[in-house]
Every structure is written in structure tokens, then in C-alpha cells.
Amino acid sequence: MAPIIPLNGYTEELNLLAAFLIGIGFGFVLEQAGFSSSRKLAGMFYGYDITVLKVFFTAAITAMVGLIFLNYLGLIDMSIVYINQYYIKSAIVGGVIMGAGFIIGGFCPGTSVCAAAIGKIDAMIFIGGSLIGIFIFGLTYDWLEPLYNDAFVGAPKLSEELGIKDGLLAFAVIFMAVMMFWLGEKAEKMFKRDDISKEI
């Protein structure tokens, strides 16, 4: 029965070792996919390279379907699996600020670490900026706290909110992803930039 480590009460050391090994897999795949290149990541927003869309949604779908099957087969106790808490206002405002950071800086935190690992100096600076941003958040926390903790609605699942089964929602997400892949592949041809693609 999973999740294996919390259910069996394994030591914190083993949990941290698992974290490290999972991180190696995470970093390896991100780099293999080309997420270590800011111009490849930014390509998503100009249509010349939609790798981000393909990798991100394929990954989300794979894990989502995997969890649904594990749950269906009784191999995982989903009551122990972490479901993100939803604070409506801070999730939206935070997401919008992150989106601005993405198009301005060219990375997100995970991809910046991956890119820094292969020597991208812009990624190292992005990490420095992130640390500063987090520090500023801490400094201004008292002032932000009302927004940060406002409109808390627990940890709802989208399937519950819509009143449909997990499997049906998964099917809808897969359908939308395939439509986006199809449109994205068209966009890649339409907004093709060979000059950029050969550099990244």
C-alpha cells in the first residue's frame, strides 16, 4: 500500500534520500526535454516552440491517470496524498505575478535550477532574483497576510466541484490536452523560427 514511506513510518533520512533520488529524475528529465533553455521555454508564448505545453500536460496526465488507477486498484491511500489547499485570492494573484515573472525572466523555479546546473548564467541570476523575491515576501508578510489567508475554501478537487467522477474529469483533461497539442503543433509551423530553433 502506498504512499510507502509515510504509511510504513520509515525514517526521515530515508524520506530525504527518496527526495534526492526523485529530484535527480526530475532534473534529468527537465534537462532532456530542453527546459534548461529560456528561449525554448519562452517559445511557448510566441508559438515557435511549444515543448512546454507538450511536456507539462503529458506529465500532468500521466501522473493523474497513474494515481486514478492506483486508487482504483486500492494500491494507494489517497487520503494521505497531499491535495493543494485553495485560497482563492492568493492563488490567483500569486499565479498572475508568477506568470509575469515567467515571461520577463524566462524561467520558473524548477527550470531555473535545472538550467543553472548546466551553466546558464541567466538562470543563476533568476535564482538570485527568486531568493530576493521570497525575502521581500517575508519582509512584507504582515501587510500581505490578509490577502494571503483570505477566501480559504479547503482543498477541493475539481471533480468534486463539478460533481463528476475523477475518471470523467481525467478524460476531459486528456481531450483538452490533445486539442491543445494539435493546435500547438499547427502554431509551431505557423510561427516557425529556424533562426531561434537552431540556437537552442
Binding site: 505575478i97 508568477m98 515567467f102 525572466g105 532574483g129 521581500i136
Partner: peptide, 8 residues
């Protein structure tokens, strides 16, 4: 961009 992302 990093500062915005970190803060957000």
C-alpha cells in the same frame, strides 16, 4: 523575473 516568480 526571478524576483516576481519568487514573490508570487
Amino acid at each position: 523575473g526571478g524576483a516576481l516568480f519568487g514573490f508570487g
